[in-house]
Design a protein around this nucleic acid. Structure first.
Length: 755
RNA sequence: GGUCGCAUAGCUCAGUUGGUUAGAGCGUUGCAUUCACAUUGCAAAGGCCCCUGGUUCGAGUCCAGGUGCGAUCACCA
């Protein structure tokens, strides 16, 4: 009898197997057998946040990437999967600030250096946790190339890109209005804000001869322009540029009439006053008509001195009091109207965005490049048209196009401290802008003044991670004497969640074409969101967050991986339940017991089974073709079909279909049908050898097909087969992917006597 | 308001280019159990594939319209 335990225990083998793989060196492509003749196949890992433990979304991504990498490695590619971790600027700063808050302090009570040092140590402490998590997920990535987004080599590349863009006139600093989060004290890109529907009172105020509507009376201090639609018949008699005296909140003002098509005649009274310093639409109107404007609200969201007795109050606190005052002085005409509109919020803290005029660096998205190439936006669209970048599943390509077509300039500066500082100095005397990527410039090259002021801002994280595919390869090239960029770029696949299609994928495409003239990757595979069994988003507040490592402890990494892949079609959200993982653990056990059965029979029924006989079943089977039973022929034909179809499915990213058909075959064909038939066949001396050989072939092939999905148990069983000299390759991770044998045709022709 | 998507078994979902009796996991019901595995096996129940119309020899799959649901983007005070 077999000496193997009755059930498979993942806890005893997973870490040993990962170590075995590490020791083999096969995660590093140059160490693979016949590395020189292999064709490169590269995936750059989306670097998880160094500061947070992995969540189940990471587990999904890592699993998909690992499946692709293991599949291609077995198919003979020179596979590089480059791991990394992300300093995750804004995200981490928010987490770190919360920690400070708990300690009763805040970044505004520290120097910038103290803060940066604190955040750095915080991240370094946690960084190994994510790396450990990646390993426990079975990721066969090349740790010798592990890269951190703040590695000096990476930062240098980011700086060089910025400098080049500045020389090309692609980046500029502008004092236009931006999204401002009063809590986090930073500007945000449109993408970093969200909208929420609110129903709020809508007030009608008397403004000279007009009635204006507003939901934000507190911003109306200082309003001295009234804007009408040029085609509005009601106000035909008022000419643009005319002025009039109006009694207003803070006393009489001299108001000027402006006509602009931005006004909606149907909305409210069809008349509005503008607050250019705190509203994007108003700002644009002011720009068009070259109007003056004044700051009413400070960066913390409090009213300034212009608000008189309300100065220093938070706007929401002041609103009702101001309405009351307006009523008292007879300016309030109507208050009972409700108004449903979308308010813009910080995506991180959910606080109201208060637009502010703060200088920011922007990248031009729609302007032609100096070297004659189209704009960054158009280059990316062209790449899609020419299929140099393909997004898996067409729907994402459509979404991508739609977003690209409406793109606006990208603000890349943030007023946060944790991140890559913007390498710019300003001359206090002549205002010269100096790009200083080595931080060595001491005096202004233009006027020789030594009064230089450093830009206080940091880059948007996505500006640096948008360069990740080439930056990682270049950084490794700089660290070690390797030709990584030449060898592994462009990469083959970018696998990530669809939620960062715009944040990340779009920027990678644009920046890579800009810098390298090449696409960063051939294909983009987007996975969906992992949800709980009730399709709810996982969140701490709902207490339904699945900790992947906890699941691995309970059911094993293979079970988690298989459960995640099993019903995952590209880009659709995935409900994950404990039952599903449990079911997949059962499947692993099934495979284990198939192996036990075969091994126990190979000892008793065929003590003389030689290695050669076992590993070359095809020849053995062929020579004995006439002795084959229908069961033998049937299962081999099905195996053959499985090899073909699962290979094609994997090639086309239909991982779930491959997983399902392999599952189906192993359990319901191999085990339920063939193993049952073999029990009789093994008792027949004439059929015994052939039956065993068929079992070996089936088992070895299934282990190979399953290995990308369930790397640990398959490698473990393989090692047992190997100990008994039943398989040739030492490690399954580098075994050859099964080739179709066209067995059935061969068997039929031989059995029937025709060549 | 723009864009995109979804609707298939009790639940969660697969179903690539249109092609026989539409599948899986979990759940339900009945039977089996010294024989690899109770983390099991065998069997069963359960589907106008949202509705209407069209294209086709043939539609869950393609087209049009409808209904319901959702995602995402967006400067209407």
């Amino acid at each position: 009898m077999s000496d193997l335990p009755k059930s498979y225990d993942h806890t005893k083998v997973e870490s040993d197997i990962y170590k075995k793989w590490m020791d083999s060196g096969y995660f590093t492509p140059e160490n693979l057998p016949n590395a020189k003749t292999r064709e490169p196949y590269t995936i750059i890992m989306p670097p998880p946040n160094a500061n947070a433990p992995l969540h189940v979304g990471h587990a999904l991504g890592m699993t998909i990437e690992d499946i692709l990498i293991r599949f291609e490695r077995m198919r003979g590619k020179k596979t590089l999967w480059l791991p990394g971790t992300d300093h995750a600027g804004f995200e981490t700063q928010v987490v770190f600030e919360k920690k400070l808050e708990k300690q009763g302090t805040s970044r505004f009570k520290m120097t910038r250096e103290e803060f940066y040092k604190g955040a750095w140590d915080f991240v370094q402490e946690n960084k190994h946790i994510s790396e450990e998590g990646i390993k426990r997920l079975g990721a066969s990535c090349d740790w010798t190339r592990n890269t951190f987004t703040l590695d000096p080599e990476v930062v240098k590349i980011v700086y060089q890109t910025f400098k080049q863009m500045h020389e090309d006139g692609l980046v500029y600093r502008s004092g236009r209005i931006c999204n401002w989060c009063p809590k986090h004290q930073t500007g945000l890109a449109d993408l970093e804000t969200k909208y929420e529907e609110r129903v709020e009172p809508f007030y009608y105020l008397k403004y000279g001869p007009f009635t204006i509507g507003t939901s934000r009376p507190e911003t109306k201090y200082g309003d001295k322009y009234v804007v009408l639609h040029p085609d509005d018949k009601r106000y035909e008699k008022y000419k643009p540029g005319e002025t009039f005296e109006a009694e207003w909140i803070n006393g009489p003002v001299k108001a000027t009439i402006i006509k602009d098509k931005a006004v909606d005649m149907e909305f409210g009274s069809g008349v509005m006053t503008i607050t250019p310093a705190h509203d994007p639409v108003d700002f644009e109107i002011a720009q068009r008509h070259k109007l003056n404007y004044e700051q009413i609200i400070d960066k913390r969201g409090k009213l300034l001195d212009i608000a008189g007795e309300f100065a220093g109050q938070k706007i929401l606190d002041a609103r009702l009091k101001i309405v009351e005052k307006l009523g008292k002085i007879g300016l309030l005409e109507k208050t009972d109207e409700k108004y449903k509109h979308n308010v813009q919020l910080c995506y991180k803290c959910g606080n109201l965005i208060e637009p502010q005029i703060v200088p920011q660096w922007y990248i031009k998205m729609t302007e032609k490049l100096k070297d004659g190439r189209p704009s960054l936006r158009d280059i990316a669209l062209k790449a899609l048209n020419k299929k140099e970048v393909q997004i898996v599943t067409e729907k994402f390509e459509k979404i991508f196009r739609n977003w690209m077509e409406n793109i606006r300039d990208w603000p890349i500066s943030r007023q946060i401290w944790w991140g890559i500082p913007i390498p710019v100095k300003y001359c206090s005397d002549c205002q010269e802008v100096i790009i200083d990527i080595d931080d060595k410039t001491q005096s202004c090259p233009k006027c020789a003044s030594s009064r230089l002021e450093k830009d206080p801002d940091t880059f948007d994280t996505w500006f640096s991670s948008g360069q990740w595919p080439y930056a990682t390869l270049m950084a490794n090239q700089a660290k070690k004497d390797r030709q990584d960029l030449e060898t592994y770029f462009p990469t083959q696949v970018m696998e990530t969640g669809w939620d960062i299609l715009f944040f990340w994928v779009a920027r990678m495409v644009m920046l890579s074409y800009y810098k390298t003239h090449k696409s960063p990757f051939e294909k983009v595979f987007l996975h969906g969101l992992v949800r709980d069994k009730d399709k709810q988003k996982m969140s701490k507040s709902k207490n339904n967050v699945v900790d992947p490592l906890g699941v691995i402890d309970l059911y094993g990494c293979d079970a988690l991986r298989f459960a995640l892949i099993f019903s995952t079609s590209a880009g659709n959200d995935i409900p994950l339940s404990e039952d599903k993982v449990k079911g997949m653990k059962h499947f692993g056990n099934k495979l284990w017991n198939i192996s036990r059965f075969i091994l126990s029979n190979s000892v008793i029924a065929s003590p003389d089974a030689e290695r050669g006989e076992a590993i070359l079943p095809k020849e053995k089977i062929a020579s004995d073709a006439l002795a084959m039973t229908d069961a033998d022929k049937d299962i081999l034909a099905k195996l053959d079909a499985l090899i073909k179809s699962s290979t094609v499915n994997l090639e086309n990213f239909r991982l779930h279909e491959a997983a399902q058909e392999i599952y189906q075959f192993v359990w319901h064909e191999f085990a339920d049908v063939y193993i049952e038939a073999s029990k009789t066949q093994l008792k027949d001396e004439k059929l015994k050898a052939n039956t065993l050989a068929t079992c070996y072939l089936l088992l070895a092939t299934c282990l190979k097909l399953l290995h990308p999905f369930m790397p640990f148990i398959t490698e473990h069983i393989w090692s047992i087969l190997r100990e008994r000299k039943l398989v040739e390759d030492e490690l399954l991770i580098v075994a050859d992917w099964p080739k179709t044998l066209d067995l059935l045709e061969q068997l039929v022709s031989e059995a029937s006597g025709y060549p």
